[in-house]
Design a protein around this nucleic acid. Structure first.
Length: 223
DNA sequence: GCCCAGGTGGGTA
DNA sequence: TACCCACATGGG
């Protein structure tokens, strides 16, 4: 299997035909996106939002979150799960940003190359490649391609990546495969595809009928 | 009850 | 290097 840029472009094109251009929501400030994405780890959007807005409602600023008692933050973000990890990590990130940059603002990342910015973000405990890519791509409009479990799984089924490759290695590979101006829509539409197929596979919907785009199979490239 | 959801980091072989 | 696992909650 030799995934090609052409095939990736075709996948992106078919996804566009099926799902359309994803709505570009008003980008969150990078700090907000960072916190929101840490909260989103291993949970769903609904629970992430509960936790995120609980934080926003309780504290006027991220500075207030930064200096809040740890137990209060943990309690606040409980709906997102893993609060004992995420709470201290979020506060540590906020603290370190202030320590290193003097203020809670990540705008300076735009002045860096995407790799430098990625490395800077991932040096924080709790910020991995996916979280960093979300902040860079969604908030700062930089060319990073976030690979989450949906992207990883679907890209395997579609033959966009070698089967035996780690999530970590899939990151740069997929990033190189898609055109930079396709990252946003490809990311969101592949997730939609993943969710659709995932739901279709559940017992109550035995007829997957898969997705008419490239059949959800390992031979997709041949279709 | 059980399974899963837009990860990450630490441990083990 | 390559897996494996803990971490926690809410909804279907």
């Amino acid at each position: 299997m030799n995934p090609s840029v052409e095939f990736a472009a075709m996948v992106a094109e078919r996804l566009l035909t099926r799902y359309g251009e994803p709505e570009w929501r008003n980008p969150l400030p990078a700090i907000d996106e960072l916190v929101s994405t840490i909260l989103s780890q291993n949970t769903n959007d609904q629970n992430r939002d509960k936790a995120f807005f609980a934080l926003v409602d309780k504290y006027d600023t991220w500075e207030a979150v930064r200096v809040a008692p740890e137990a209060d933050v943990i309690e606040c973000i409980r709906p997102a799960g893993l609060g004992n990890q995420k709470g201290p990590r979020i506060q540590k990130v906020l603290n370190d940003i202030v320590a290193e940059r003097g203020k809670l603002d990540l705008g300076f990342l735009k002045e860096m190359g995407v790799e430098e910015a990625r490395n800077w973000l991932t040096h924080f405990n709790g910020v991995g490649p996916k979280t960093a890519a979300i902040v860079l791509c969604f908030s700062l409009g930089m060319p990073a391609f976030p690979v989450d479990t949906h992207i990883y799984r679907v890209s395997g089924r579609l033959g966009l990546r070698p089967e035996k490759i780690s999530v970590e290695d899939a990151h740069p590979l997929l990033e190189a495969l898609f055109a930079k101006d396709q990252y946003f829509q490809a990311h969101l539409n592949i997730i939609r595809l993943g969710r659709e197929v995932c739901q279709a596979r559940k017992p109550r919907c035995p007829d997957c009928a898969l997705v008419d785009m490239c059949k959800y199979s390992k031979n997709a490239q041949k279709l």
